[in-house]
C-alpha cells in the first residue's frame, strides 16, 4: 500500500511490479498479500481465498472420482 496515496497500491502482476488504483475497493481495502482482479489499471474485486479453495475442492472431488473410475476400468476384465 502507498500511505501518501491511499487510492494506490503496488501489485505484482506475474512477476512485474505495477501501481494500480484500489479506490473501487474502498469499502474493504485489500491488505498486503491479498489477491485482486485488475482491469484497466483498477482493482475491481478481491479474490476470496475460501471460495477459491471450495471451488478447487469440488474439482479435486470430481477429478478423484474420475481417476477412480479409470483405475477401476483398467482393472476390469470384461470378456
Amino acid at each position: 500500500m502507498m500511505p501518501e496515496h491511499p487510492d494506490l497500491a503496488k501489485v505484482d502482476v506475474s512477476g512485474v511490479r505495477r501501481v494500480i488504483n484500489v479506490g473501487l475497493l474502498s469499502d474493504s481495502p485489500p491488505q498486503p498479500g491479498e489477491w485482486v482482479l485488475i482491469h484497466v489499471g483498477f482493482a475491481l474485486s478481491k479474490i476470496d481465498e475460501e471460495e477459491a479453495a471450495a471451488a478447487l475442492q469440488f474439482l479435486e472431488g470430481i477429478g478423484q472420482a474420475y481417476a477412480d473410475e479409470l483405475a477401476a476400468l483398467a482393472e476390469s476384465r470384461i470378456e
Binding site: 475497493l25 469499502d27 479474490i47 476470496d48
Partner: peptide
C-alpha cells in the same frame, strides 16, 4: 455463481455508486 472466488453476490457497491 460459479465464480464466487471473484464475484460477490451483490457486486461492488463503490463501483456502482461511482
Amino acid at each position: 455463481n460459479q465464480y464466487s472466488r471473484v464475484v460477490p453476490w451483490n457486486g461492488n457497491l463503490v463501483a456502482l455508486k461511482a
